[in-house]
């Protein structure tokens, strides 16, 4: 059996050229119709569906030998799935990798947008589990497709307003729906709504890949991305009462770290690169030096 020899050889960036062409054509359509979900014939990838196969296929289709890749999960470069995806691209594309947001030409992310403002020429690739913002209101693809076609988004407004009626505020904290360039309602992927404003007129190209659901969508640079809201209940992002305990940053998204079983906790930057950079610059949080070791 010569299977071993066959299995050992993969094309650059894993995908075969025909697959890349198919995905590339879908990306071009996605850019031309911002916020519209382009169906594509997603491939089985060597990692499970739901673990970033859409983002990986998009990255593999745009990535070239001159790129520098950064992969984050929950804002961090060292979470296991980010490590795994980064190692995958190092292996199959021998591409340069970095943890620095500013140095990266392509950033693949799950659940966060980096704190550092992205620049022209950068590409942010989102891993998307459920690309359809209307899916939890209407489970049928045949129906939601019609709703997008007719620009019929009343149901979404009703849902958000019901939240307000019941709770006094909108009870959606992540995957908060946005409207792109005044036309398509889009799921920003499960990023906290804290990150939504970063999408608006971003200098970077934003590409979204949903492997299991077989959809690609995009937001070109300098494109309007507006979080849905109401005049009497304007969109608001999360606010944290205290700064990052390690670097002292305010106005960033924080993770709550449990320190002991007596209710002790600290809040630290979810964006590890941002936090490290600030600490290197000499910023000090009130608990710096007491950070718990990452588990082995």
């Amino acid at each position: 059996m010569n299977t071993h020899a066959q299995l050992a050889t993969y094309n650059f960036a894993y995908l075969d050229e025909q697959t890349k062409r198919m995905i590339r054509r879908a990306i071009l359509k996605a850019i031309a119709i911002p916020g519209y979900q382009v169906p594509f014939a997603s491939r089985e990838m060597p990692m499970p569906y739901g673990w970033g196969t859409g983002g990986v296929q998009v990255t593999a289709s745009v990535l070239g030998p001159d790129d520098t890749l950064k992969v984050i999960d929950q804002g961090a470069d060292d979470t296991t799935n980010a490590v795994s995806i980064r190692a995958f691209f190092q292996k199959v594309a021998n591409v340069a990798v970095t943890t620095s947001t500013a140095e990266a030409t392509i950033i693949q992310t799950r659940h966060r947008i980096p704190e550092e403002t992205l620049k022209e020429g950068q590409i942010l690739v989102y891993q998307v589990p459920i690309p359809e913002p209307l899916r939890f209101l209407e489970p049928r693809e045949t129906e939601t497709r019609k709703m997008h076609a007719l620009e019929e988004y009343g149901l979404m407004h009703v849902k958000l307003y019901e939240d307000i009626a019941k709770n006094g505020h909108i009870a959606t904290t992540y995957a908060y729906p946005v409207k792109v360039e005044g036309r398509y309602v889009m799921d920003p992927s499960p990023t906290p709504k804290f990150d939504n404003p970063k999408m608006h007129r971003s200098e970077a190209l934003q590409l979204f890949g949903a492997g299991r659901e077989k959809r690609i969508y995009a937001v070109p640079p300098y494109t309007d991305v507006v979080s849905l809201d109401f005049e009497d209940h304007p969109f608001e992002i999360q606010k944290f009462d205290e700064p990052c305990a390690l670097c002292g940053a305010r106005n960033v998204y924080l993770d709550e770290v449990i320190l002991n079983d007596k209710g002790g906790r600290m809040f630290v930057c979810s964006d590890t690169d941002h936090c490290e950079k600030r600490r290197a610059e000499g910023h000090v949080g009130h608990l710096a030096g007491e950070a718990p070791e990452t588990a082995q």
């Binding site: 094309n11 650059f12 289709s61 745009v62 640079p221």
Partner: peptide
């Protein structure tokens, strides 16, 4: 070199449509 030439041309086309 189909693999790398295709990738580099695609990025140009993608940039052209994104910008």
């Amino acid at each position: 070199n189909p693999v790398f030439d295709g990738q580099s041309v695609f990025r140009q086309v993608m940039n052209a449509l994104a910008r």
